[in-house]
Computed example of a mutant assay.
Amino acid sequence: MNQHGSDRQGAAQQGVKQQRTCVGCRSRAARADLLRVVAVGGVIVPDPRKRLPGRGASLHPDSGCLEQAIRRRAFSRALRLEASPDSSVLLRYVQGSEET
């Protein structure tokens, strides 16, 4: 038992897939199916390796979810930004990944 009184092990050790919510469509999906994005100097950049420092948000890597997130201003809320971020780098990344 741990200090909180449960026998629970880490989710990764139990083989349970970690779930995240897409900031665009708001549906839950496995972490591996979503693209992590972070804000770097007011610009939203993709983090496909999930290694960049800072607060991240999850997004399905398709243009529909990206458009919804931009329209809803979801990146500002999820990443706790004061100003609207530049999403042009992320848009190019998503469009490029849809073509392949």
Results as ranks from 00 to 15, higher is better:
Ala29Cys: 06
Arg31His: 06
Tyr93Ser: 09
Ser87Pro: 03
Arg72Ala: 08
Gln68Ala: 00
Gly54Gln: 07
Gly54Asn: 02
Leu66Val: 02
Arg31Phe: 06
Ser97Pro: 05
Ala29Asn: 06
Ile44Lys: 10
Ser58Leu: 00
Asp47His: 07
Gly54Tyr: 02
Gln14Arg: 15
Ala12Asn: 15
Arg26Asn: 00
Asn2Phe: 01
Cys25Ser: 01
Pro48Gln: 02
Asp33Arg: 15
Val40Glu: 15
Gln13Glu: 13
Arg72Tyr: 03
Leu34Arg: 03
Leu79Pro: 10
Val89Lys: 07
Phe75Ser: 03
Val43Gly: 11
Phe75Arg: 12
Ala74Gly: 10
Arg51Cys: 03
Gly64Asp: 05
Ala74Met: 03
Ala39Ile: 08
Glu67Pro: 03
Asp62Lys: 10
Gly41Thr: 15
Arg73Tyr: 06
Gly5Lys: 12
Pro53Leu: 01
Arg77Lys: 08
Thr21Trp: 11
Arg71Ser: 01
Glu67Tyr: 05
Gln14Leu: 15
Lys50Ser: 00
Pro48Cys: 12
Glu67Trp: 03
Arg77Asn: 04
Gly64Ser: 01
Gln68Val: 04
Ala12Tyr: 14
Gly42Thr: 15
Cys25Glu: 00
Arg28Asn: 10
Pro61Thr: 13
Pro61Gly: 11
Tyr93Glu: 06
His4Thr: 04
Ala78Gly: 00
Ser27Met: 10
Gln18Leu: 13
Gly41Cys: 14
Ala69Gln: 04
Pro46Ala: 06
Arg49Gly: 05
Cys65Glu: 08
Gln95Trp: 02
Gly42Pro: 05
Ser76Asp: 09
Arg49Gln: 10
Pro46Phe: 07
Glu98Thr: 14
Lys50Asn: 02
Gly96Arg: 14
Arg26Ala: 10
Arg92Phe: 02
Gly96Gln: 13
Lys17Asp: 00
Val94Leu: 05
Arg36Tyr: 05
Gln18Val: 14
Arg28Tyr: 04
Arg31Asp: 07
Pro46Trp: 03
Ala32Trp: 04
Arg26Pro: 06
Lys50Arg: 14
Arg73Glu: 04
Lys50Leu: 12
Val45Thr: 06
Tyr93His: 04
Gly96His: 12
Arg31Lys: 14
Gln3Thr: 05
Gln3Cys: 01
Ser6Trp: 05
Val38Gln: 14
Val89Glu: 08
Gln68Glu: 06
Ala78Thr: 07
Val37Ser: 09
Arg36Phe: 10
Leu59Gln: 07
Val23Cys: 00
Arg55Trp: 03
Ser97Thr: 12
Leu52Pro: 05
Arg92Tyr: 03
Gln9Arg: 11
Ala30Cys: 07
Ser84Asp: 11
Gly41Trp: 15
Arg55Cys: 08
